[in-house]
């Protein structure tokens, strides 16, 4: 097996007396979708926030593409190539698709030796079209404010943005939440497409059908600890639920 893209060893994160993440180790390999399962408060969000630079872990090591890394701020994780798409998508609904893809990193024309800079909207539109086409995403119009788009369409914009900026690891927080069934299918299809292009995805979810639809591997957390890790073919929904509620625990039986 090739070297993992992301490797976490013995990570611990405490909030006061609460141990939110307790000695968790895991690997993410190139081109795989890993589902991170767990009940509310299981510690999956905290774990992810430690990887995406929102929290600094108290103990343990994160290696990204073979090198030990530390992300004091979210921007540090993003510039390293780790993109996190939260449920709110971080899109400006009043702006169009290219403006959102290039938000904060706009392309500019320079005039008078760089004294006057204007937005290069034409170029950004072309790039947006290409990046959406590469993911096989088609919209009726890219130049309308995205508030007129559906939830799934906006999810697609957020994914396209991450890919455009060369994300080498995608973390997605409940991407199918609040979506209709057809839209859920489209977003899952996009996740498969990311994997096919070699971008690994960590999928935070508690929607069981999503897990079996796209995940190659499943990690279940319970009360801050990783209680099991299974290949999708080796398990089933009812077994996973038992892990999620704490009825099963691999660390306990092996110890």
């Amino acid at each position: 097996m090739s070297e993992p893209i992301l490797s976490i060893r013995h990570m611990v994160k405490r909030f006061g007396g609460l141990v939110a993440v307790n000695d968790v180790s895991l690997d993410i390999n190139p081109g795989e979708v890993v589902a991170l399962l767990g009940d509310n408060g299981a510690g999956k969000s905290t774990l992810i926030k430690c990887v995406s630079g929102v929290h600094l872990p108290d103990e343990g090591e994160i290696r990204f593409e073979g090198r030990p890394v530390s992300f004091p701020k979210p921007i540090d994780a993003r510039s390293a190539g780790i993109e996190t798409i939260y449920q709110d998508l971080a899109l400006a609904n009043n702006l169009d698709v290219p403006a959102n893809i290039f938000l904060g990193r706009e392309a500019k024309n320079r005039y008078l030796g760089g004294l006057v800079k204007t937005l290069n909207d034409k170029w950004m539109l072309g790039q947006a079209e290409q990046s959406l086409a590469a993911l096989d995403i088609r919209f009726p119009s890219l130049t309308q404010p995205i508030e007129s788009l559906s939830g799934g369409q906006r999810q697609a914009v957020a994914i396209a943005r991450a890919i455009y900026w060369k994300a080498r690891l995608m973390i997605m927080d409940e991407p199918t939440n609040n979506l209709g069934v057809p839209e859920q299918q489209k977003v899952l299809e996009l996740i498969r497409r990311l994997r096919d292009q070699g971008v690994p995805v960590i999928l935070i979810t508690h929607t069981m059908p999503d897990v079996f639809a796209v995940a190659d591997r499943i990690i279940v957390m319970h009360r801050g600890r990783k209680v099991t890790e299974k290949r999708t073919g080796e398990t089933n929904a009812s077994e996973l639920v038992q892990y999620m509620v704490g009825a099963l625990d691999d660390t306990r039986t092996s110890a």
Binding site: A92, N93, L103
Partner: peptide, 12 residues
Amino acid sequence: GGNMQAALRTGI
């Protein structure tokens, strides 16, 4: 004005 959080997170 459209989404302060998005602006912050995209590094504006």
